[in-house]
Amino acid sequence: MLDIVIESRKASIGPNLTVNRILPFRLRRMVGPFIFMDHAGPVRAEVPDAGEYDVLPHPHIGLSTVSYLFGGTVTHRDSLGVEQVIKPGEVNWMTAGSGIAHSERFEDPAVLAGGELEMIQTWVALPEKDEESAPSFHNYTVEQLPVFTDTGVWMRLIAGNAYGLLSSVKTSSPLFYLHVVLSQGARFGLPKEHAERGIYIAKGSIEVNGNTYGEGKLLVFTKGGDPLIIAKEKATLMLLGGEPLGNRYIWWNFVSSRKERIEQAKEDWKQGRIILPPNDNDTFIPLPEDKSRPSGPPPEVLS
C-alpha cells in the first residue's frame, strides 16, 4: 500500500548549486536506513568558472554518504587522503563513522558547459554499534555492480540485495538501492523482502494503483504490498529502502542516535578536531551559526 508521496523541494548546497531535496521530510524522516536524498542536475553553466559549483570541505559523523552519477564527473577528496574521480554508474561509498571531512569538486568545465552533470546522493544512517567506527572510503566500478535486464526493464543493483541479486558493496545494515530504467509500457514490482520501500522518480512518469506520478516525487510503501508499477513513458527510477534503525537526530551534516553526540561534533568541527582533506585544505565550510536543537529537519544540509 502507498503510505506517503513526498514532493522534492529546492535546496541550496553552494553559492551556485541548487538541488532537489527529497529526504529528510517532516512527515517521513527515513526510508529504511536512508535518512537523506538529493538529486542534483542536470547542471548547465554557460560560462563555468573554476570552482563555481564546488562543495568545499565539510564534516560528517554517524552515516555513510553514497554518491551515484547519471552523467558527468565529480572529484572526491577526504580526510583519509583519498582522491577519487567518480564516473557515471560507479558508487562512491564513504563511511564517516566517528568523523570525516570531504569535498566534492566539479573540475571539468566541458561537463558543466554541456549540461552533463547529474548526481544522486544519499546518506545511510549507521547502526548504533557502528556510529563510532573508523572512517573509510570505497569506490566501486560499473563492472562490480550487478545488472539485470528483461523486456522493457534495465536495472543496476547499487547496494544490498533485491530481486535475487546481491551487490558486493559493503553495507552495515539490511538495505537495497537500485537504479532502474523502464521503457514506456513496461510493468515492474517492488522487492518484497524489505520492511520499508521507496521509489524516487528521477525522470519520466509511472502509474501506481491507477494514479500517475511524475519526476521529483518519492513514493513510500508499507511492507508486504505488491504494487504494480507501469511506465507511462520512459522512466528512470531510484529504488531504496531496508530495515529501519530507530530514531536518528540530524543537524547540518551530522547524524546520530544521541543528541549530545551531535553537540560534540559541532565543537569538534569548530576546534579543528575533524581534520581536513590533506590535498584540499585551503578552505572549508564553517559551522553554521544556528541555535536549533538536533531534532527536526536541518536548516541547511550539505552533501
Rank of each mutant, 00 (worst) to 15 (best):
N247K: 14
E215P: 02
V255M: 14
E196S: 12
G224A: 08
P191T: 06
L182W: 05
L228S: 12
F254G: 02
G210D: 03
L237H: 02
V220G: 01
R187H: 13
W251C: 03
S173P: 08
S173Q: 09
G214Q: 11
L178V: 06
K203S: 10
I201K: 11
N209Y: 06
Y200I: 08
G198Q: 07
W251F: 03
L218R: 06
R258W: 07
G204W: 13
G185S: 10
N211L: 05
T212D: 05
K259Q: 15
K232V: 03
S256P: 02
M238T: 11
L190K: 04
Y177R: 10
G189H: 12
P174M: 04
I250A: 15
Q184A: 15
A265Q: 06
E193A: 15
S183I: 07
A235G: 04
S256L: 02
L219V: 03
V220H: 01
R261I: 09
L190E: 04
I229K: 00
G204R: 10
M238E: 07
A235M: 08
G210N: 08
L218P: 03
G198S: 12
I199Q: 00
E215L: 05
T171L: 07
F221M: 01
G225I: 09
S205A: 15
I199D: 00
S257H: 12
K223H: 15
K170I: 15
R197M: 03
